[in-house]
Amino acid sequence: MPSSRKPKLAVWKFASCDGCQLSLLDCEDELLAVAGQVDIAYFPEASRAMVKGSYELSLVEGSVTTPHDIELIQQVRRRSKCLVTIGACATAGGIQALRNFADVQEFVSIVYAAPEYIKTLDTSTAIADHVHVDFELRGCPINKVQLLEVVSAFLHGRKPNIPPYSVCMECKRRGTVCVMVAHGTPCLGPVTQAGCGAICPAYYRGCYGCFGPKETPNTNSLSRWWSHLGVKEQDLARAFRTFNAWAEAFREESVAHEK
């Protein structure tokens, strides 16, 4: 029989906006119930108590951007039975991966008067570029219902039920008229993974890809459709280069439309 000790949960932060870990605190109706099932052993945004040792589940937010991050993520991996990344930063490098397309020293000197004080890497990279990751939860930000599903799945030793299909599926299910077909509004929904609930089209706006590429996305075909709608090349490059800019499918598509 397993012991009655509650499994230990840790929440780690790398370069990020804190929004994905906030999603856990945003589970207003479930937070205390979750805390009844797991021992929230390390979650500095919420608690002073920092339990050392190892953890059954580590949720990792943020991307790797400093030499210190490279060391820390190795430690996190060693101390975690399961490691799940939460959000676009941890899963694809985040918006800060725009530096990967540029000269980072120039970037630093734009922002800081004394660039020599700043220690940063040339790239912002996903956690999976550094250590083995057991599951990647997408989104900028993540969907808190999906987060609860992932936590629940790992605690029960089953696979999380997170569909890899496109936002289009969610629009259909929600009964939203296609903004691209009906209104000619450019939309990244066909190549973007579901999970948000297809919010943007429901607000008469095209999807902007914050959940990153779906499985087997045909970005090239979608770009041609966007061109038919009159979208210019540089705007196509920009559209693929946002919060999941360094995810392979989006990266390649943005590079194809640059200049």
Binding site: F14, A15, T65, T66, D69, G94, I95, Q96, L98, R99, A102, V104, E106, F107, V108, I110, V111, Y112, I118, T120, S124, D235, R238, T242
Partner: peptide, 17 residues
Amino acid sequence: EPPRLFEAFLRGRNYSE
């Protein structure tokens, strides 16, 4: 907190973004 360099990569983006 590691710098994320927003002010740098905003250059060249559209006002609407």
